[in-house]
Design a protein around this nucleic acid. Structure first.
Lengths: 228, 228
DNA sequence: CCAAAGCGTTAACTCTCCCTTAACCCACCT
DNA sequence: AGGTGGGTTAAGGGAGAGTTAACGCTTTGG
């Protein structure tokens, strides 16, 4: 169960934040942490996360604004809101802004962990196979097929493809791709280009339907060409 | 907001069930109802639902078993569990079986409604799109369509368009546009003019309905033309 | 223990496309 | 006429993206 989840905790109460991080650590899950809203929003824009744990009361920019901000950028990472207030009105506000779950302080740490895992499961969860058009990725066998023909990919190529397939048809920024593949110690920028090149060479077999697209200034997207 | 949701309520307490159904009715949402686990499972297997509200204490077959049953059939409809018990252990059990949310009785009816809507929203993959007339901007794909035809824009053009669409039908000053696109180090004044020109050339395809308007002395506005 | 193969990274090069700039045009107003 | 605000056009320079080859690390098998 100890998957490789990427969690972001946006919480200004240092004690609470540390407690959360420690608990996740016990589960074998590492988290990033931001102590204010602006920093949180920055991290979210430039990284890939599976779940965002977001306190409402934050310095600089409150949780609701952060949530609104990330949704308005088209990012739909699940958001779990934390708050001290238990009024229905606050919940309504939170949910209507785009939050996915809502936990009232004080809460049992275990419940936070569980709910976080549930949220992540929906997204990247117990799916064995990703399919986009005639492209198939079997996550267990680490096998890729295009039009029922097996394709041989390098480990890195496979990771890139996985990321793109998970997000299809969304455009994935280079930063997110690199974050997904290499984590925090990333190689020189050029490496991604080379891998993309190799990926394309491997995946785009027939010249009729290309799936991997470059979106200038934004990144890459995996999808059927929309010009029908 | 009154989408066409299909909800199933599996609850043996007739009063509570009716209350729930009535509340959803007020929101313009119709629900099916099952008063025991076996019946619930039957309905779920043979119908499509967007969300299932599932009491744990049920005659014939309890909620946990029902949930296990539907998951083992590969049905991944979101499940919201209801229970009188507020022990962590129960929640863990519920979530690990495949539930997506968990509400402890007594609860506020509004909260049930909201959480249900949130669950359905995530499933049906809410789309982040800005729309003005027949112009569509997909924030996730970074793609622009006019009358269902894809339009290719440069990164800068896209940013300008995004700014205009967010503010529609308001008039946006040049300063604001430039701030949005370039931030603090802005190029010479002329650049915006050129980009606006290119934007127009790309967006105003048919000559019938023009969307981008110049408001002399103030800036630009994106809207259906209405010469005041 | 060595050799070969596979993979990832790097650097260097090319190419394309986009942004900027500057110059010119037009209409309208004073 | 001249000034002002806006529109149009073309050219250059540069950044971003694609391509290729070589080097080095790790793994594997003999």
């Amino acid at each position: 169960m100890a998957e490789n989840l990427q969690i972001l905790v946006v919480e200004d109460d240092i004690d609470l934040a540390n407690a959360i991080i420690e608990y996740f650590d016990l589960e074998g899950i590492q988290c990033d942490h931001a102590s204010n809203g602006v920093l949180g929003l920055q991290l979210i824009t430039n990284h890939h996360y599976d779940v965002i744990i977001l306190d409402i009361n934050l310095p600089k920019m409150n949780g609701l604004e952060v949530c609104k901000g990330i949704r308005s950028q088209g990012i739909d990472t699940p958001v779990l809101m934390l708050t001290a207030k238990d009024t229905l009105d606050d919940k309504v506000k939170g949910f209507s802004i785009g939050a996915d779950d809502y936990l009232v302080k004080p809460f049992a740490m275990e419940e936070l962990i569980i709910r976080t895992q549930v949220l992540s499961r929906r997204r990247s969860g117990q799916v064995y196979k990703l399919t986009v058009e005639d492209l198939e990725l079997d996550l267990q066998q680490k096998q890729v097929k295009r039009a029922d023909q097996e394709i041989k990919l390098s480990p890195t190529g496979l990771k890139i493809l996985e990321c793109l397939m998970r997000e299809t048809p969304k455009t994935v920024s280079r930063e997110k791709l690199m974050q997904f593949v290499w984590g925090d110690d990333q190689p020189d920028s050029n490496s991604l280009k080379v891998h993309m090149f190799n990926l394309r060479k491997a995946v785009e077999i027939d010249d009729q339907l290309s799936l991997i697209h470059t979106i200038p200034g934004h990144g890459f997207a995996l999808k059927r060409e929309s010009i029908t």
